[in-house]
Each structure stands twice: as C-alpha cells, then as structure tokens.
C-alpha cells in the first residue's frame, strides 16, 4: 500500500495573486528516490510554484499532498520532511556557520545537532571557517552552507530553488555528488533550474513550466543529448 503513495503530489494547483493568474491547474507527482527538474522562462511562476508546494503560500485552489498528507498551514510533521533551499540563504550573517546550523538544528529538533553540524560542515568543505561570521563569506561559501542547513534535518524531500547559482565547478560537482547520494537513499528531489547541464546530470524527469502551466514533461535517460534537451525545451515553451 505504501508504494502507491507518491512522495509529493500536486492536484490541480492554481494560484491567483492580485489579478494575475500565476499558476493554472498544475498537476505533478514525484516518487521516492526520484528527481524532477522544473525548468521554465523567467516569470513563469516557478518560485510561486515552489512556495505553494512548501506551504509558505496557500494555493487559491487545488491540493498538495506530501507523503499522502495534505499540506495545510502549520502542519509541522510535513515541514519536518521538507528541506527547502530557497533563493536566499536564510542564514544569519552575524552568526558563525556552526551557530547557524545549531540554531536550525534546535528548531528542527535534531538530536546531537552539534556533532552532526560539524560533520556536515566537513562534508561541504567549510569546517575551517566554522568560527567566522557568515557576513565575510563569498556567495559560493554561503550557498554551500545553506546546502548544509537543508541537509541537517535529513529531509525526505529536497526542494531546491536554483541550487547551482554561485557555485564554481568544484562545488557544483560536490553538490551533485551529495544529491545523488541522497537520491540513492530514497530522498525525493524537486529542483528548479536554469542550468541544462546540471539538469541533465541530476534529473530523471524534466517538466517545463511556462505561463503558469506545465507545458510538457520528458524523462531523461543516461547519456541523452544536451542539444536535444534544449531543442525540446524551446519547442515546449513556444507551444504553451
């Protein structure tokens, strides 16, 4: 029975902000251990789509189910399962990396948060800087730290809003390695990206969001052609 429940399921999600229809009738599903990339032009409603999915915004109509549970506001068990990497880092720039992680660790009720934070800092390659305030960090370092913040709670689903921005090749490689490892262990990954290379590298499926609608979806096989992916994307956007 458990197998039939999708990790994440969106049913006819519609969001109207002001007088604008941002999302219309978006339906998607995502299973455990699967990774789905959402691509789309600017202003297609990707960020709104994410905020509705995480439960930060209430959709105008439609439902979002996470692990079979309806997302409404304040459902803490649902929030516990989500690791949300947003556009901003959500870090406190006056605190050190370790303090940031410990603070979020306490909020997510993580046992042995200190030990785990230290391990994660090592994993993302920041443990040498653990006592420096985040203020002095470069964009890439902040991004690494926010990835550590998201992973700290061991979420069952990762929602990543353009995770590769500001990362150099080495760090992007590190991130991909971590994500693939997580995926292998059954974590579902939903990500928004502009970067087709990374999408091709990471995603099992791609969905194109254009003008608030899912224009097309496609499965990505290993070794498929980057050019073909781009061509397909152009076509889907034009068709919408």
């Amino acid at each position: 029975m458990k197998e039939l429940v999708h990790m994440l399921e969106l049913k006819n999600l519609t969001k109207i902000l002001g007088d604008k229809v941002i999302l219309r009738n978006v339906s998607l599903s995502l299973d455990r251990g699967e990774s789905l990339a959402v691509v789309g032009p600017n202003g297609a409603g990707k960020s709104t789509f994410f905020k509705c999915t995480v439960g930060l915004l209430r959709p105008t109509s439609g439902e979002v189910y996470l692990d079979g549970e309806l997302i409404s506001k304040n459902s803490m068990s649902v929030k516990q399962k989500i690791g949300f990497l947003g556009h901003e880092s959500y870090l406190y720039s006056t605190l050190t990396p370790l303090e940031n992680l410990k603070f979020y660790g306490k909020l997510y009720k993580i046992k042995e948060a200190d030990k785990k934070s230290a391990e994660l800092l090592k994993e993302v390659g920041l443990h040498l800087f653990r006592d420096m305030p985040v203020r002095s960090f470069s964009r890439g370092m902040v991004q690494r730290l926010s990835i550590a913040r998201v992973l700290l709670a061991e979420p069952e689903i990762l929602m990543l809003d353009e995770p590769h921005t500001g990362l150099d090749v080495e760090a992007a490689y590190l991130l991909n390695r971590i994500l693939k490892e997580k995926q292998r262990r059954g974590t579902a990954i939903l990500m928004i990206s502009h970067d087709f290379e990374q999408v091709q590298e990471l995603a099992d499926r791609v969905a194109v969001l254009s003008k608030g609608k899912i224009a097309d979806t496609m499965a990505i096989r290993q070794g498929s052609n980057l050019e073909a992916l781009k061509e397909w994307y152009e076509k889907a956007v034009k068709g919408a």
């Binding site: 439960g55 304040n74 068990s77 989500i82 947003g86 901003e88 959500y90 720039s93 997510y108 913040r149």
Partner: peptide, 15 residues
C-alpha cells in the same frame, strides 16, 4: 537580511 524569516517560517515550528 537573507530572508531568514522565511527560513523560520518553513521550519517545523508554530508561527
């Protein structure tokens, strides 16, 4: 700054 209020909102705590 860094929109950390959204970080708090998406954490599993009561507002």
């Amino acid at each position: 700054e860094n929109d950390s209020i959204t970080g708090l909102r998406s954490a599993p705590i009561d507002p």
